[in-house]
């Protein structure tokens, strides 16, 4: 036993410090994901795309979309909601390891589709997209507050804000896990 210990101690002493500036990713074979140069998004595994993935039927008519500032206004509100949530200590950790560029796009598409502004939703369905995230009702409320803040900043009338929330509220059953 003493012999083994001495041998190990000797081995330790003989070890060399690794060279400065070692590329550890290369040493351990870690592949960094590359963002798509055009969209700026990380690649995702293929999945069947359908507007049904948005989780609800869209509103008819253009009035509601206009209240949100059209497609551009909707995209801005979605992006702002994500920004606020990333900065919100209550729920920021949920967003930390996900692709915010993609989320801003798909969330904007979902809002745009549900509000009848004529977009197609290309994201995954709500259950798949939120699997294993452990989202709670309190997290959901925090997100709703951030969305409300984004809509308020964009001067969306309150009744119109609630019309969007009315589409999202039933979908929450696929998002909230605990």
């Amino acid at each position: 036993m003493l012999l083994t210990a001495t041998a190990s101690a000797l081995l330790m002493l003989m070890q060399q410090a690794p060279a400065e500036g070692t590329d550890w990713d290369a040493e351990f074979g870690v592949e960094a994901k590359q963002r798509d140069p055009v969209t700026g998004e990380f690649p995702v595994d293929p999945y069947p795309q359908s507007n049904a993935n948005a989780g609800a039927a869209p509103y008819d008519g253009a009035g509601l979309a206009a209240a949100f500032g059209g497609r551009e206004g909707i995209a801005r509100i979605a992006a702002r909601t994500v920004d606020l949530s990333e900065a919100d200590p209550r729920i920021a950790p949920i967003f930390a390891s996900h692709d915010m560029v993609r989320l801003k796009r798909t969330l904007g598409e979902q809002f745009c589709y549900l509000l009848g502004a004529g977009c197609d939703y290309t994201g995954r369905d709500m259950k798949t997209a939120h699997a294993q995230m452990g989202v709670s009702r309190a997290d959901m409320n925090a997100l709703v507050e951030n969305l409300q803040a984004a809509m308020r900043e964009a001067r969306v009338p309150f009744a119109a804000q609630n019309r969007l929330l009315a589409k999202l509220a039933p979908i929450s059953r696929d998002v909230v896990e605990r």
Partner: peptide, 17 residues
């Protein structure tokens, strides 16, 4: 973390402003 590397600067033809 891999995802915290700075993103490719604003994608040119994105829907997201």
């Amino acid at each position: 973390p891999v995802l915290e590397q700075p993103a490719a600067a604003s994608p040119p033809n994105s829907l997201v402003p």
